[in-house]
Structure formats: C-alpha cells, structure tokens
Amino acid sequence: MSPARTGRLRRSVWLPNLATFVLLAVVIGLAYLVQSLFPPRFDRDFLLAAGLIMSLVPAALWIAFFYRMDANEPEPKGMIVRVFLLGALLASGLGLPLISLFNLPDWLYAAPWVTLLGAVLVLGFTQEFLKYAAVRFSVYRLPEFSERTDGIIYAVAAGLGYATVLNVEFMLDSGGGNLGLAAARIVLTALAQASFAGVTGYFLGRQRFEARPLWWMPLGLTISALLNGLFFYLWGTLKRSSGGMIGGNLNPWIGLGLAAALAALTAFCLAWLIQRDQRRFAPEEV
C-alpha cells in the first residue's frame, strides 16, 4: 500500500474512533445525570427498557469502532447484525443456562486461585466457545467471509451480541439503584466480550485462509478463555482490600480499572492486527 493511502486510512479511522470514546463517555455521563436528577425506578419494564438502551448503544458504538477499521472490503451490515443476534441467542439460550448449572456463586469464591481457575474453565471457555460457534456455524463458509480480518469483525459482532444479553440480565438483576455505575460496567463488559471474541476471530480468520495445524483453533479458544477468566478475576477479586475481608476498604474502581486495562489492551492489539492486515492485503490503487 502506498504511504499516502496508509496515511489517509489512519486519519480516516482516528477521528471517528475518538468520537466513539467521547460518545461512550457521554453515555456514562448521561446515566449519572439521570441518576442524580430523577428518583430511582425499580419496575421491571423500566429496567428492561433502560437495560436494552444502555446495552445496545455501547454495543453499536463498539461495533462501529471495529467495523471502520475493515476499510478494504467492509462486511455487509445485515450479516454483521445476524451474527450479533446469533451471539445474543446463544448467550440467552445456551450460555446463561449452562453456566447457571455450575452454581458458580456457591464455590467460585472459595479462594483466589479457585476464582481464577474456575472463571477460566467455566465462564471463559463457555462464553468464548459460544461466540466461536456463532461465527463458525454461520458466516464462516459463506462468500462474505472473504479476508482474514473478517474473522475478527464477525467474532466481535458475536461477542457484542453475547455482551448485550449479559448487560440486560445485569440491569434486571441490579435493581436499578445505581445507573451511572451500571453504565460504566455495561460499556466495559461490551468492550471485554467483544475483544476476547476478537482474539478467537483472529485465529478463525487465519484458519479460514491459511493451512494451520490442528492445535491452532484450540489455542485461539484457550487464549481468549484465559483473557476472559483473567478479566473476571481482576474485576471481581482485586477490588477487595488487602485483608481480604468484606466491609473493609472496598474499592471497586481498582478492579474495574485493571479489568478495563486488560480489555483495552486486547482491543488495542486487535485494532493493530486489523490495521496490519488491512495494509498488507489492501487492493492496489489504480
């Protein structure tokens, strides 16, 4: 690719991406504003509507963030939406029921190493496998899956579908007491689920167009499950005070910050991989 086109590609992506982050901050700010101006509402219909809006807006912004990077041959939007919906369906139809069978709250917090290992084995592998399945058994063999980057884009869509179901469920369970913190959590969950799915998508994309060994896809799934489990661990466990007792110096922002850093780092790596492939496999300009 010519240096001029590379420069244009970078410029064309940076401004909208900056706008994405500003809009996400606006979503969180609006939630805090609503929380401070209006008394809390606890009825289920309101929580469902608020949960859907608060989940779909960040999902749309994150999907636009990754979609814009796929500049060479953008995917059909209808196909992206279908994979998104499939991710959501698999989450509500299989993911949540399967994970609930493990009764995680009863044993997952027995010790920090149990939390980490259990989160990787049960949460990580279940969630990442279903996001993988949403791509592998839908668009993977279709002509629309036409370049390596498409693996990431479609997997991100499946991950955001999965995250939307998790976020709506969280809103319904949370009782609606703290909209601002809920909005921050929703934005972060969406980024994390999308990014970890994107890692599997990267492996899927290369598997589709290159001869890869048998261990290639299991390795991709394992890496994304590890990231997913580590994210859960950082978010949930490190927020405790050093004494490890509840009611001490609880600081949810420490865990939230570390988890956000992991998700953001993964997203940054994915963005770099997409841009690298876009430059490497770009059609020549006439």
Partner: peptide, 17 residues
C-alpha cells in the same frame, strides 16, 4: 478439536467444584 477442548475445560470445571 475446539469442541473437545471446550468440553475438557467444562469437565475440569466440574472437578474443581
């Protein structure tokens, strides 16, 4: 292989529990 990996992980999850 991916399905087998995921099933193995879930089985290990049961053992851990």
């Amino acid at each position: 292989a991916v399905v087998l990996t995921a099933l193995t992980a879930l089985a290990l999850g049961l053992v851990l529990r």
